[in-house]
């Protein structure tokens, strides 16, 4: 039977595997949107790992800031870049 420590290691290892895959995908992805969303997912999984390491304060902060607010800031700036892009294309055409 597995004892507590081995189970925790297995859970963390599984989460870590997911995180590494998500990080690789996020770095290599073609579309910017999926890249940004996957990096938010990495942060969300990291907050689970922090919870398993006995750091609930850090887990709360990471879930709120790392995955929610950072993703929102990225999305806002992506939309702004898109607006600039459209504007410059219009300027070129007319």
């Amino acid at each position: 039977m597995l004892d507590g420590r081995t189970t925790l290691d297995l859970v963390i290892g599984f989460l870590g595997l997911l995180m590494i895959l998500a990080a690789l995908w996020s770095v290599l992805a073609k579309r910017l949107l999926s890249s940004v969303l996957l990096s938010g997912g990495v942060s969300l999984l990291a907050s689970l790992v922090f919870l398993a390491l006995g750091a609930p304060d850090v887990a709360m902060t990471e879930a709120a800031i790392g995955s929610a607010l950072t993703t929102m800031v990225f999305l806002y700036s992506l939309s702004r870049m898109k607006v600039e892009c459209d504007a410059s294309e219009d300027g070129g055409r007319s």
């Binding site: 770095v27 910017l32 990096s39 990495v42 942060s43 990291a46 850090v58 950072t70």
Partner: peptide
Amino acid sequence: VKMIVGFAIADTGVNM
């Protein structure tokens, strides 16, 4: 933007 995503991921790694 991809470079900045890379920095954000590295940030998470350092915190861990």
